[in-house]
Design a binder for these strands. Structure first.
Length: 318
DNA sequence: AAAGACGGCAACCGCCTCCTA
DNA sequence: GTAGGAGGCGGTTGCCGTCTT
């Protein structure tokens, strides 16, 4: 015979809704999150009056409802970055997503499985071994070599000091550092604030404008390196890229995250008490600082090692 | 116009790690 | 030390809209 409390649990569990979320459920969750902030998800589900499990609420918020999500199709630059990051990180979607602000791991995973994977597959099947070194004939020059080769080349190029290494040359030819740069990402609050004008204060848009809250610092640091490169080699600046001074200001915000915390929220009574990191600093973006150490090897190290690539023959003060 | 095929994507599932009592 | 809960993650499923025949 089953214990009475277990029966209760089971009956509660069986009453929980599954499947697609209704607009009413979405509204309940948004209202609750924006007024109470992030907490225990099972409590959120209960207190918001949702017949959903905490996990389901968490997923819905992270993947669909949170205000800093960027909607719409992936840009070419995002596409390039995903491909590059996947070649380095593999199927670590959350870590890839952490470096594309406003995108979720689920979104990137779906995009990869539905679109990029097929394109890369088509590419490898149509590219003969003899014309592999022609970078512009496939995928718009995104990834004309397979992932294993790229990884091998990276390993070789990052450990070899010889800039005349054939593999390094090929890698240099294939790996376009400019495509790694992401333009300004201003979170689009339009949809949410249009739906809930009474609960989205104007300052939320300002929060969105502070794009560097976590996700883009690595890009910004790379961006700085690229500006130095442009200076040293008199390259034309990439349109839309920030200046070093701007980037440093944003990086400074990162290192003084607490200072940033309240600046955007002090003017609103409704969510004044909500910590920024509670509202925005979890999920993908919130993992960034934590993810500085990851798995078997360090992505930050890889990014720093970009300065040691044979085709980037310069050093940047760290 | 209808039916089947296909693709995209939201959501679920199961496993893992971390934390706390 | 350990059991249980919560959260995080990657893989998978299934629905639904679009395309093709």
């Amino acid at each position: 015979m089953r214990k009475p409390d277990m029966m209760g649990k089971d009956s509660i569990k069986s009453k929980l809704r599954k499947g697609l979320w209704s607009p009413e459920e979405d509204e309940k969750l948004i209202r609750y999150m924006l007024t109470n902030g992030h907490g225990c998800w099972s409590d959120i589900a209960r207190n918001a009056g949702l017949l959903r499990c905490g996990k389901s609420c968490r997923l819905r918020w992270i993947n669909y409802l949170r205000p800093d999500l960027k909607r719409g199709a992936f840009s070419q630059q995002e596409e390039d970055l995903i491909i590059h990051l996947h070649s380095l990180l593999g199927n670590r979607w959350s870590q890839i997503a952490a470096r594309l602000s406003g995108r979720t791991d689920n979104e990137i995973k779906n995009f990869w499985n539905s679109t990029l994977k097929k394109r890369l597959k088509m590419n490898t099947s149509t590219t003969s071994p003899n014309n592999r070194s022609e970078p512009n004939d496939t995928l718009g020059g995104i990834m004309p070599i397979n992932e294993h080769d790229l990884m091998t080349m990276y390993m070789d190029s990052s450990t070899s000091t010889s800039s005349s290494s054939m593999q390094s040359m090929v890698f240099a030819e294939q790996f376009d550092p400019f495509s790694m740069l992401i333009n300004n990402n201003h979170y689009d609050m339009t949809n949410v604030s249009a739906s809930f004008p009474d609960i989205i204060p104007p300052c939320m848009n300002q929060v969105g404008m502070v794009e560097g809250h976590h996700g883009n610092y690595e890009i910004l640091e790379l961006n700085n390196k690229m500006e130095l490169l442009e200076r040293d080699f008199s390259l034309p600046p990439l349109e839309g890229r920030r200046s070093i001074e701007d980037n440093n200001a944003l990086i400074d915000v990162k290192s003084h995250n607490n200072h940033f915390n309240n600046s955007c929220f002090n003017n609103t009574n409704q969510i004044q008490s909500t910590k920024v990191e509670e509202l925005f600093g979890f999920g993908n973006d919130g993992q960034c600082v934590e993810n500085l150490k990851m798995g078997e090897w360090d992505f930050e190290g890889l990014m720093q090692d970009i300065s040691s690539f044979p085709f980037l023959d310069y050093q940047v003060d760290q």
